[in-house]
Design a protein around this nucleic acid. Structure first.
Lengths: 149, 149
DNA sequence: TTACAGTTGAAAATCAGTTTCAGTTAGCAA
DNA sequence: TTGCTAACTGAAACTGATTTTCAACTGTAA
């Protein structure tokens, strides 16, 4: 399933928001990218097509889309705020390539048992978790191999 | 096992760094705290004892200590950069109270199976992960209860 | 005690993100 | 189609976090 522009547009309207050309561009930029993008990177991309767009608009749009659950944040090391289009609306995590930044989603995290155990041991009332794997994606491994040869 | 000042001093010297009074204060401030501290919070604490210390020194010292593996970063939601003394030199994770910021360590994460499975499925060469639970610590739950009564 | 590499803090620069505001516009209703 | 209005926009100014630069200082090995 993909988030088409129309889908996003109607979702926005349902919440009383408008679909402006600027928002359209921002959504496209994120949708077409396979990696997570920082607000600055999104600004760069969109700015090329639409040079008058301001940073403020980027931040505002990211906030709205995140609040609506269409985007999710990635906590990449170094830069803290990066965004990805949330394809499945369900609970999931990320596997981030530390070389090129490519991101894979996965849904099975199976942390319930650990969560229960920790809750019992520490007395914390646990309500969420952040799980991310990092590594080198197949493409980057290929490239690295070729470079050695 | 604890990181005593002498231990830290000799580790610093081994790497060609010096143990200055400023660094001493910074290490103490972090060691005496049970929660993760942002650079700003560390600055506040140290500044009380040593009013001439500059923020630059805080940042530089944090970088050095992190690079040496004596500190580890906590990715709390909201503020991104927080530091804790790395007590056990082993692999561990954090359980962070989203109310008061208290941090508990835990070592059992048992993600090997998941890691292998993901590696097989995606072709990623996985070399690390970030796992953090968030919740309300027992103290804050007590306080919340009392407030209701 | 000395020499010097490493360290310091002040100031200025840079960067990310927020607030404010006056002008503009998407989209509903007539 | 038109008019209205709440939502939206970009510029500018602001804030707070972090980095860079630099001249003066200091811990430490010899």
């Amino acid at each position: 399933m993909r988030f088409t522009e129309n889908r996003v547009a109607s979702l926005l309207r349902q919440q009383g928001y408008k679909l402006t050309p600027q928002r359209r561009q921002i959504i496209n930029a994120i949708a077409l990218s396979h990696e997570h993008l920082t607000p600055a990177a999104i600004y760069e991309k969109v700015h090329q097509q639409h040079p008058t767009i301001g940073r403020v608009t980027i931040y505002r749009t990211l906030d709205i889309l995140t609040e609506m659950g269409l985007l999710c944040e990635v906590h990449a090391e170094g830069s803290c705020r990066s965004y990805l289009l949330r394809r499945p609306a369900e609970h999931h995590h990320h596997l981030v390539c530390s070389d090129c930044g490519a991101v894979e989603d996965f849904t099975s995290c199976d942390l319930n048992k650990l969560e229960q155990k920790l809750s019992r041991q520490t007395g914390f009332d646990i309500n969420g978790h952040l799980l991310e794997f990092s590594g080198i994606c197949p493409d980057c491994r290929q490239t690295a191999k070729r470079r050695k040869e």
